[in-house]
């Protein structure tokens, strides 16, 4: 029982502030970049920034960086399954037009 507080990694406040400022900055960066015509790259930039921001929240605000291996595994499993759902279903939509539909 004496080791109770060791489970709570106390994150220094300056880390929170740094993460917070980065998140705010990236929000306005992504808003600005969307107005620049990058063609098909726009969505990749937007999603990369979103993934970067989400990672910061998960790692620092949600303490996963300081968490157990099991916590990290659960988070990764969740993301992996989300990607399974998105990519496998999209694979159908991406390839559906490759071969014409008979009779059409």
């Amino acid at each position: 029982m004496s080791d109770h507080n060791e489970q709570h990694h106390i994150v220094p406040i300056r880390v929170y502030i740094a993460v917070f400022l980065t998140l705010i900055a990236m929000t306005w960066v992504t808003a600005y970049v969307s107005t620049v015509d990058l063609g098909r790259l726009n969505i990749f930039v937007a999603l990369s920034i979103a993934i970067f921001k989400a990672s910061l929240v998960i790692l620092f605000f949600m303490h996963v960086k300081y968490g157990t291996k099991l916590t990290k595994m659960i988070v990764l499993a969740g993301l992996y399954w989300l990607l399974l759902l998105l990519f496998i279903a999209m694979a159908d939509l991406w390839t559906r037009g490759w071969m014409g539909v008979p009779g059409r």
Binding site: T30, A31, S34, V36, D37, N42, L47, A54, V57, F61
Partner: peptide, 19 residues
Amino acid sequence: DIVWIFLFPLLYLIDRSHT
């Protein structure tokens, strides 16, 4: 918060370069 971090670019920021 994270859900919104994705919703914002996906819903508000498509093809803004013309406007």
